[in-house]
């Protein structure tokens, strides 16, 4: 369509002369739109949508992870799963893990974003350092923190000894404390995501509003509570849902830092252990299905909120 439109800027006549090479028969716009979209469509269909359908099928079979064994078992996998006490332990661990890490990330993320929003010398460098943990591969995060917290190698024990001389530092990698260490490491790693998002939103707040409030005698706390926080509310709401979805399904850092045993067995770790530890592909597929259904619920809520927010601000 736009090919045949002439320019509206009143350019010199030489430029607006009709072109002899204009195509005679033209495909409709939607044809080109669909053609351009098709590679993305087939890629996402083939590697994400079709596998989901295949996952549903797998979850009703006794498929083996390495052998070509494959027969239908109906709802057996699901029934066994819902009856297993460790499945409910996993659900509880996952909810606690996601809830605690998201809550801490949010509080710390907003605080750090407010800090980095202030004007000070060297702000650019400090911002880079503040965002760095999010960029690092999870295997590196897991290894460096296991090395830092190792009870025999020094760095962490030395620090505890300096702060509380003479105290016996607890082994943070022991089965009864590893969950809490994992929470700390996850918060360390993922808080930058909140910082970036909140910082981007803070930059759009009109400074004159804040100046006016200062002139009217509002202190820092009141300015935050009555002006900044209401402005941040939509983005925080979105972030809570988005981060909860991500943390609920987080596999790599959980598994690499803490998940090789049974102490921290979230649903993603349980899925992995079922399939590649016990070689039960069908049974693992059932766990993945449970995760998937929970995730779909979160996603629907998330997108509804996002669109509502878009319409409100539009």
């Amino acid at each position: 369509m736009s090919l045949t439109r002439t320019t509206t800027t009143g350019a010199p006549a030489a430029n607006t002369a009709p072109r002899a090479s204009a195509p005679r028969r033209r495909m409709p716009g939607w044809f080109w739109g669909a053609l351009l979209l098709s590679p993305a469509f087939f890629l996402v269909l083939g590697v994400i949508a079709v596998p989901i359908a295949y996952l549903v099928r797998l979850s009703f079979t006794d498929a083996h992870a390495y052998l070509p064994k494959f027969s239908s078992v109906g709802f057996d996998n699901y029934v066994a799963l819902l009856r297993a006490p460790h499945f409910w332990d996993s659900v509880r661990t996952t909810v606690w893990y996601a809830g605690l890490t998201v809550g801490l990330q949010l509080v710390l993320g907003v605080l750090i974003a407010l800090l980095l929003h202030q004007r000070f010398r060297g702000r650019g460098v400090v911002r880079l350092i503040a965002l760095a943990p999010y960029m690092v591969p999870s295997i590196v995060v897991a290894l460096v923190w296991r090395w830092l917290l190792d009870p025999t190698t020094g760095a962490y024990s030395w620090f505890v000894d300096k702060v509380w001389p003479g105290s016996e530092p607890p082994n943070l990698l022991s089965p009864n404390l590893i969950f809490w260490s994992l929470i700390a490491v996850s918060v360390w790693m993922f808080t930058p995501f909140i910082v970036i998002s909140v910082l981007a939103r803070l930059q759009t707040i009109d400074p004159s509003t804040l100046e006016a409030a200062t002139v009217d005698g509002a202190g820092a706390w009141r300015r935050f509570w009555h002006i900044v926080l209401p402005e941040l509310k939509p983005v925080l709401y979105t972030l809570i849902l988005l981060r909860f979805m991500f943390m609920f399904t987080k596999f790599d850092v959980v598994y690499l830092f803490a998940g090789t045993g049974t102490e921290v067995r979230t649903l993603p770790v349980l899925t992995f252990q079922r399939i590649f530890g016990e070689a039960r592909l069908g049974s693992g597929a059932a766990v993945a299905m449970v995760l998937f259904v929970l995730l779909m619920i979160f996603t629907t809520v998330y997108l509804r909120t996002l669109y509502r927010e878009r319409e409100e601000t539009a």
Binding site: P51, I52, L281, A285, L291
Partner: peptide, 20 residues
């Protein structure tokens, strides 16, 4: 629809993808 795909967790996709 594509946005929905973004929210699919890798751990959920990797199971059937391994089979396929």
């Amino acid at each position: 629809a594509i946005l929905y795909a973004y929210t699919f967790a890798p751990i959920v996709i990797v199971v059937p993808l391994y089979g396929m």
